[in-house]
Design a protein around this nucleic acid. Sequence first.
DNA 1: TTGCGCCTCCGTAGAACTACTCAATTGCAC
DNA 2: GTGCAATTGAGTAGTTCTACGGAGGCGCAA
Lengths: 219, 219
Amino acid sequence: MTMKNQLEEPPMQPEKTIRLFIADDHELVRDGIRARLEDDPSIEIVGEAANGKQAIERINAANPDLVLLDINMPEMNGFETVEQFRKLGMEQKVLFLSLYDNKEYVRRAKVLGTNGYMLKDVSQAEMIATISKAVQGGFHVTSSLDDCLDNTTSDLPMLTEREQEVLAAIAIGKLNKQIAGELNISVRTVESHRSAIRQKTGGGNAASLAKVASDLGLL
Amino acid sequence: MTMKNQLEEPPMQPEKTIRLFIADDHELVRDGIRARLEDDPSIEIVGEAANGKQAIERINAANPDLVLLDINMPEMNGFETVEQFRKLGMEQKVLFLSLYDNKEYVRRAKVLGTNGYMLKDVSQAEMIATISKAVQGGFHVTSSLDDCLDNTTSDLPMLTEREQEVLAAIAIGKLNKQIAGELNISVRTVESHRSAIRQKTGGGNAASLAKVASDLGLL
DNA sequence: TTGCGCCTCCGTAGAACTACTCAATTGCAC
DNA sequence: GTGCAATTGAGTAGTTCTACGGAGGCGCAA
């Protein structure tokens, strides 16, 4: 367990250009990223997509070193897209780009084995730095999120899958009875989950649970 | 009441450049806008701000023809910023820029007497076109929002102020009892408002009201 | 002045949720 | 196998919300 395998790709020149693929549903944001990075000779933008589906179709042809992936996209969001990558055997490095400094998002990004989480409010310098680091491997977040990293496994609510299902249903206004029907469990079980969710999240009534759900990115 | 006062600034050349001020909390988005507009000789970017407060401080010095204003900004959002403009006697034209195709936002933009509402997913061409139109006056929305315009006064829930206060409180998980205390009204009154809100929005239980509140931009 | 919308308040009945408690089953890790 | 977490289910009591019904005051506009 030495530091050897830190350099898996052997002959890496110091000035090798990074082949970057951008997936974001807003053309405006893509333009912004382009504008920022095109000055930098060490980064080359080799492709774009406006959603996860397009990304999957186009990435292999573009053969990027790193995929800059927005989380909130229509059709297929960033997380789902990465899951698809894995299923299809695509092993590109991924750096998430998101508007939200949401601990749960950061946690999921880490759990998925991606290489970083970057907020959209970063400066040009930090964006370039984070991209460079993500390409090397490991998991990197932009500075304002540093604190999310430490407690990423301990501090967070960490709802179980079932609890997340139930919470998502609660958040869109479903009644316990409906939820029970859809999940094929008894109303009492739904209540049990609900109560567990309340305990873990500190949320009180149904409305505040809805807020929690949206904070957790379950909608 | 002829059309005379439509041209208050008398000698307007056809190719006059538009002096544009950009207020958006994301440097990335500002960069994107810059990148898109800097090719166009008819638009000149004369200033930037990262929030409403900065915008107010800087706009007079920049003397723009049009302010491109993000809605979701920290400290002071776009709507509050415009209200401040008015209080301070600033009469610059305003074009909102937002991520959300939210009818209620469009309605508020219109009610505030601003000159348009542009989604952040517009193309470069449409962005330039909308800016040009907004500078001329009137109220303009980007194409995907056209349908919001017609029913902007009739179709929408149009909650009363009190109802909005109550809804906002519900959405963050407050109990009727708490709300009653804070608004100095009885619990029964809160219930009445709540029931009116349910009727107007179609929302059923508390959780779905929370969702409605967030859709309406009350949080 | 008459009407209308908004805000305020109330009663009753039932549905839904909250707050505690407990426990059987499954599967996974040590 | 023992322990632990996740999922499932239940009892009891109390609180909160929902769905009806009704009514008075106030301001504004036709």
